[in-house]
Design a protein around this nucleic acid. Structure first.
Lengths: 231, 231
DNA sequence: AATATACTGTGTGAAAATTACACTACTAAA
DNA sequence: TTTAGTAGTGTAATTTTCACACAGTATATT
């Protein structure tokens, strides 16, 4: 980082977002390329300051939109980072949020402020060093969703609306970073009863097309008041 | 609440603590009686502002000590509350922490600031309305430890160092609010292998004394890298 | 010393869940 | 029509969970 004189400020709150996506069998997160000091040109989590008159949940939505152009995802707070010197310009306590979304080739990622030069999807495996303590924030968030995957229906937010069981399995394998047994996985998933088999098949593959399924949110809610146990 | 003119302030961070204790088969939390506006004379969670030059973890320790006289407990952050109007005097975002401790009859609870008149243990079942949004904070914290009880060895922080299996069971029953089967509970607990049977028995009971056990932190760490599954 | 009281400590069988494991069926492309 | 590549399926062994009841023992009471 260059030596530049920067203004300092008193206590402020900020938000940082860890947004997961799944594409080509690979788990990715959304990063921005910073266009301002400090850490100009570095990759960072989308994050910015909370305004006086907005709740932190609202701030998270706004900030993500401004830095990446993404809207209307259900973000969820997961941890607050409050070390004294985590930000070089002053005291900044940041509340970290995560969300999981379908990566949508056509939906363009376009920051609406100058603060981010661009937003990109980056595989979680080969992450470079990120600005501030963002590497740590990412790691904490990844552990969080890794655990939540097994008792909350978050996998379906990462997949297209219609998906094959193999896609679902490969998502679990990517997050848990281990191979699962195909027959056992399918048996268990279907036994929950919240997957709806469609009268449709996968298109555009050069081999036997698989059946498509949908996640049935209503059935899920009926069956589980809270948890599913994929332990 | 009375109509009093109060100063306002800009953004500040605060900490609120949800401290659980277990006594006489009952789960309790630590509350203070406020001695200052707003919510003077109300019961509240121990909580106060974070200073400029302390991390939030440090602040949590300091604040708990100042308001209750308690020290050296391992608190853990669990959620951050950031609604705009949660505090009548200005914008206050609060990071909530929990801890579980042995209630120790002889250890006196004595606030070291005038801000709290006194600190008391209150059963979690019949909680009155608390100051600010503290009822909500408590509820969130209680749900958190209810879940964590099943995959982290937190129960042992609430019990005396030497405890009987029946005491352990009644703690689980209090937190989960349901009866458990004695034989199955003991079988499963012992099967983990981290309870050390002592050559000692319960004292001062007017019936057959039960064996005492200790939680063996070293064995626990060896056996579980992370989790135990009491599902 | 006998008796009442109150909790401790223990085992088994049935049911359910988890695991390991391998081949045929199908589709598209060559 | 052949090839390449994934889809889709069942069973048996093992492990885990669950339901369930009574004799043993320390103390207090008479």
């Amino acid at each position: 980082m260059e030596e530049v004189k920067l203004p300092t400020f008193e206590s402020v709150f900020s938000i940082d977002c860890v947004i997961f996506g799944f594409e080509a069998g690979e788990l990715k997160i959304l990063l921005i390329e910073r266009n301002e000091e400090p850490f100009k040109d570095w990759l960072a989590l989308p994050g910015y300051m909370v305004e006086q008159d907005e709740s932190i949940d609202d701030a998270a939505e706004r900030i993500l939109y401004e830095l990446t152009g993404l809207r209307d995802l259900h973000m969820q707070q997961f941890y607050t980072f409050g070390e004294v010197n985590r930000h070089p310009q002053g005291r900044v306590i940041t509340v970290a949020y995560y969300a999981l979304i379908r990566i949508n080739g056509q939906k363009e990622l376009r920051p609406v402020t100058q603060f981010a030069r661009k937003a990109i999807w980056h595989p979680v495996n080969e992450l470079p060093k990120l600005a501030f303590d963002h590497s740590e924030i990412f790691k904490t968030g990844f552990n969080k969703i890794r655990r939540r995957l097994n008792y909350q229906p978050i996998a379906f937010e990462l997949l297209p609306e219609k998906f094959t069981l193999t896609q679902l399995q490969s998502l679990y394998e990517a997050v848990e970073n281990k191979k699962l047994d195909k027959r056992n996985f399918r048996k268990k998933m279907l036994s929950f009863g919240f997957l709806k088999e469609l009268d449709e098949k996968q298109k555009g593959v050069s081999y036997r097309a698989a059946k498509l399924y949908k996640f049935d949110r209503r059935k899920y809610a009926k069956i589980f008041h809270n948890d599913m146990n994929l332990g």
